[in-house]
Amino acid sequence: MSMPVPLDEVLLRPDVWRGDRFAPNEAGEVASGFAALDAELPGGGWPRGALTELLPAQRGIGELALLQPALRHCAEVAPVALVAAPFLPHAPAWAAALPLERLLLVEASGREAAWAAEALLASGALGALLLWLPAQVDARSLRRLQLAAEGHRAPAFVFRPPALARSASPAPLRLALSAAPQGLQVDLLKRRGPPCSKALLLPVARPVAQRPQPQAAPLPLRPQRVQV
């Protein structure tokens, strides 16, 4: 018979936490730049050395603007990798977000993308990783990614289709993102701590501050080349 272990000692383990408190993350966190969000994230920021799963309802609702303050911070130390980006990155806009020399793009699809992300994470040389995965990539690949990320300083953000919100995932932090009139609505689906029932409204950076309600100015003439 082994000696019973006192409860206090069990609670000191990093992989055990009380359901009413936030779990500690050994690798630390990087502040998200949104006070309302930081208050709800365990440790007060995006977890380093762990997967964060983001499930945006649509593309182009501010899902990258949500990460931008943290990415800028991460890019100060090491490169940020975009793996299997869904569209073409537009250099002038990215140059405004991060130093371009710290941006690494990897074009791959599906399983190859997961493999590439795993290799990049395991190197420990990344500042942050952004990965877009299709629905077909299963939880086992995510588990491998989570293991590759552990012990390094890079936060890993994985974008997956919103239909997967109800399926299980090994990522310790999962967020559903949807459009809101004044910014971005974030629902915390999963975190290492007490469940969060309220939705957060975050003022993410948008190209136009306020949405004017009426159709403003009349359209100018269609652009035409004048033949002389």
Binding site: R59, G60, L64, P79, A85, P86, F87, L88, P89, H90, A91, P92, A93, W94, A95, A96, A97, P99, L100, E101, R102, L103, L104, P207, V208
Partner: peptide, 18 residues
């Protein structure tokens, strides 16, 4: 990865292009 020229435009530009 290299430090290149600064963007030529100051207008609002999207991160993704089709």
């Amino acid at each position: 990865a290299q430090a290149g020229v600064r963007p030529a435009v100051a207008g609002t530009r999207p991160l993704w292009l089709l």
